[in-house]
Design a protein around this nucleic acid. Sequence first.
DNA 1: GTGAAAGCGCTAACAT
DNA 2: ATGTTAGCGCTTTCAC
Lengths: 335, 335
Amino acid sequence: MTRRKRPTMIDVAEHAGVALRTVSRVVNNDPTVGTVFANRVQAAITALGYTPDERARHLRGGRSGLVGAAVRNLSAGHPVLGALDTTARAHGLTVLATATADEEDREREVVLSMCGRHLDGIVLEPVGDSHQYLSREIDAGTPIVAFDRPAGGITVDTVISDNAAGIGTAFRHLRGHGHRRVAYIGDEERIFTGHERAAAFRACMAASGEPVTGLVHPGVVAPARIAAALDAALRGPDPATAVITGNASTTLEVLRHLGSAAADLAIVGFDDFAVADLLRPAITVVAQDSDTIGRTAIDLLRHRIADHTRPVQTVTVSVELIVRGSGERPPHSGA
Amino acid sequence: MTRRKRPTMIDVAEHAGVALRTVSRVVNNDPTVGTVFANRVQAAITALGYTPDERARHLRGGRSGLVGAAVRNLSAGHPVLGALDTTARAHGLTVLATATADEEDREREVVLSMCGRHLDGIVLEPVGDSHQYLSREIDAGTPIVAFDRPAGGITVDTVISDNAAGIGTAFRHLRGHGHRRVAYIGDEERIFTGHERAAAFRACMAASGEPVTGLVHPGVVAPARIAAALDAALRGPDPATAVITGNASTTLEVLRHLGSAAADLAIVGFDDFAVADLLRPAITVVAQDSDTIGRTAIDLLRHRIADHTRPVQTVTVSVELIVRGSGERPPHSGA
DNA sequence: GTGAAAGCGCTAACAT
DNA sequence: ATGTTAGCGCTTTCAC
């Protein structure tokens, strides 16, 4: 394996017997090059196996065609990421995704690294509540879009789901099926969506005149915590007959903990998941519109790239109730 | 929004009243800078809000700390990607993931783009069977590792699961539970894993003296195709009493198509999936060891980065049978 | 239509 | 311990 040095534009120029500038023109499809020279250069390029160095090209100026996506998790599957990728591709952009691992420090690290690399723009699923470290980059003109939750302390284009409407829909659905005692189990309230959904739930209960004592359980998504929350909600003289889960992992944990007892409870989950239709009963969910979220994020980014001075905007994407069975069961007479 | 020009090292040097080189030293934590100057430079850096330009830094030489990951799909969730990311981080590397969308052209495009950007290395989940377009890059010294399937036409470090052993395990498991007529439904054979698994299945049947007529169904993962395959396997005078599915999506499609009839069939799926334990019956699977695959891929990459001349190796990672119920049912007396 | 020269922002030899 | 001088590989004024 002869570790050949990678040929540069100069090598190509020499090989073709032309000036450096001419090679550059050919590489960039400049129409002002004569056919003769163009062919000669092309021949040299293929002969030497030349590939342009994107770093240098980009350093000198111009766009890289790259947008960074800093998302919480890469392994669990991320429908929005797929939509980001598809939309970006449609506009000649390539998405480079990296994980923030739900850690603020890590987010800072990877996002600043992306800024330092001067990508065309960055799509961010914010972690934590302060993103002031980005204010300088924003001033310097780096286009940034937040999705799923707002970035704190900075003003950037944002795409979020209509969490309150989703909870409202789930709640009214269960009420419509006769449930009076509805419990909510979801994410920690320090997480934006966790707070929004819990708050919306409390508002729904208040509006319907129900006391919420023992029914609202935000917290970490961990088997023990969720088991405890569920037990609390189903215990006592006036137990819950239905539960709204605040995200997909919570839905799954609730189902795991309930086991066959799941048949006694009406369940509506926030967030759709791959096999919700295969479970028995199939799970009724409030589904986020990941395609629209991803598409909108890229669109906002593209518009900001084109015009740094346009007003910052926040887009709220509506959610949809998908009826599958688990949310349509009548209240079960306890014991 | 005053679109300030981004300050450069020269600006910092002027502001601090020192030479460019001194700023560079401070930025790179060179211990040979005097405390007085170091502080002065630091002050200038924060005052101006200077951030180094990674492109230029990288262009001049040295590592970028970036490894590219070209995977089939970003949205569906990719356990290996998580492991890649975790392992990479542990070694101070950042993974930039991008989707090939299962298209050869797209793969070529993104991988060559990564090469052009001179990342420290590339982890690739190959699509299609010719990857010769990479031979030049490999000669030039770009470290590349393939996982899940081998890259065709080039010799690179590779990590794959022991597909044949997995099928063998699944097959013997079903035989052990009394099944004689076992069907296989999986991916197209033009896909490496599809071919390996189908071939292993045929070998198993042959070794056990069973005819395979009507029992082996490789093909695209589409509802209609899978429904047809299933019907074919369960029809006739001597129908299958058990089925091995070649990948997770196929398993799900089979379950969807069977509906409640799934109770009459023993099922072992290749690939574990998120809620296999929540289905009734819970699904017995042959699980790939994604953590080991991801970790090994990064390790191979790191070793190759450190030594371009080391012999190329292929690592086979073993798979594991996870018994959950669907694979332990006895043959159902047809009709 | 083509070529010479300057410089993008940084690091690495060499002084000093 | 700090400053000077070259470039990395490319694009881009400007002349020819």
